[in-house]
Simulated scan of single mutants.
Amino acid sequence: MTSPAAAPETSPATTPALQARGLVKRYGRVTAIDGADFDLYAGEVLAVVGDNGAGKSSLIKALSGALIPDEGRILLDGQETRFHSPLEARQAGIETVHQTLALAPAMDIATNLFLGRELRRSGPVGSLFRLLDQASMRRQAQEQLDALGIETVQHIGQIVETLSGGQRQAVAVARAAMFGSRMVIMDEPTAALGVKESRQVLDLIRRIRDRGMPVVLISHDMPQVFELADRIHVHRLGRRVAVVRPADATMSQVVSLMTGALRIGDEGAPPDVTDQPAPRIS
């Protein structure tokens, strides 16, 4: 999956955690990804925005192993890699929270956090009968919720179908943070949530970022993007057209970049910071 021969393209201090160059994906005469580039740096929230049909979903699928590009390169910590499935991306430390959440509603919170990664009891009996170590899973699941400051869940053994939308989203995000050793990708994490529940999810994303985990946030909610993101990746017609910082741009300017009414270099356009990681505040 990973080619050790590929050399980092930048110095170790500025090497993106995840990078893509010239990604292309065609479906017959339709080009979903048209030479797309991408850069995610350590410890930042990178928002990916674009109109419907801009190719955001295809780009994220390529980065998370759900889609194999026809052309282009993907680099993980400066080393070229190629994912053939979401499982390979997960094994590399990339976790994705989809809009569907992929939770098992009839199971409890702890089981959902370990879904597909269940812990087995040690010893010959556990090995022979493949018994689950429920106590360890519940203990570690509670530790994860506590570490992320998730206080809206009453009990780790609560069945997921009894949770609110915000609580379910918190469980999905906690699972991603628990196993994502390199980064977390979130696709519209506050869609269909109320104001209070959205606030809880946004605070959770901040806490993940503050732990040093880079986060990719795909969102149509511009106020949330400007509140949360360190940098904004603007996607249009299957490729990246700009990366701007919320402090340097207005929502109107970003929307104009999305639609093509404004281009980087035009009078009144915000500065492009494609190759500049967001400054960290200690």
Rank of each mutant, 00 (worst) to 15 (best):
D77T: 00
M251L: 07
S58Y: 10
T162N: 15
P223L: 01
I232N: 12
M186E: 03
A247I: 00
V244N: 08
D275M: 07
D210F: 14
R239W: 05
L257I: 08
R175Y: 04
P12R: 01
L59H: 07
L46Y: 10
I281Y: 10
S85I: 00
S85N: 05
S252D: 11
V195R: 14
T15Q: 13
R130D: 12
T250M: 10
G123A: 03
R90H: 14
L59N: 05
S58V: 15
P270H: 09
M178D: 02
S3V: 02
E95K: 07
G180D: 11
E197Y: 12
S136L: 06
I109Y: 02
T162W: 04
D108E: 14
I208G: 03
P214L: 14
E143V: 04
T81V: 15
L228M: 13
V254F: 09
A177C: 04
R209P: 04
P189N: 09
H233P: 11
E161T: 08
L23K: 03
L40T: 05
Q19P: 01
Q224G: 07
V24D: 00
G180A: 11
I33W: 01
P16V: 15
A192W: 02
G116R: 00
I156R: 05
G157A: 12
V160Q: 12
A249D: 00
G28M: 10
T10M: 10
H155A: 12
I185V: 15
A6H: 10
R26K: 11
A269K: 15
T162C: 05
A106G: 08
M251P: 04
L257Y: 03
G65N: 11
G268N: 07
I208K: 02
K61W: 06
E267S: 09
